[in-house]
Amino acid sequence: MSAVPNAPHDDILRLRVTAKDLETLRALLRETRSDTGGRPHHEADGRVGIDVYATAAQVPALEREGVTVTRAGNASEAGRAAQAEVGSGDRFAPADAVPRGLAAKLAG
């Protein structure tokens, strides 16, 4: 959502934005220049939803008639947790440390 710049430390939320139809969703995304993830999905009732990433301050700009905004999680918080799963140092620095893939090696 480039229309409203992020403050440096605002957390980014994962939102499920669902509109009454595809045209409404497109118009919303066009107007807000939202950061999206995934592709639009049609719900059983005909509504169309997509993931949008935005700060809490940006949520009101998404809310309007025919549109539902549901908070799916705090992407920044999950990102900080994921950062703890990033390697430190260099696990391949030793001469005999060669990356191995995850696939099973099958005889023959």
Binding site: P99, G101, L102, A103, K105, A107, G108
Partner: peptide, 27 residues
């Protein structure tokens, strides 16, 4: 991509196939 490369190179050197769950490939 790193795992893809590592699997292929190791399997090629050792003459093995590759198993990814239910998708498998022969040597």
């Amino acid at each position: 991509l790193i795992h893809f490369a590592a699997d292929l190179l190791e399997a090629h050197r050792d003459g093995t196939g590759l198993g990814y769950g239910g998708t498998t490939f022969t040597a």
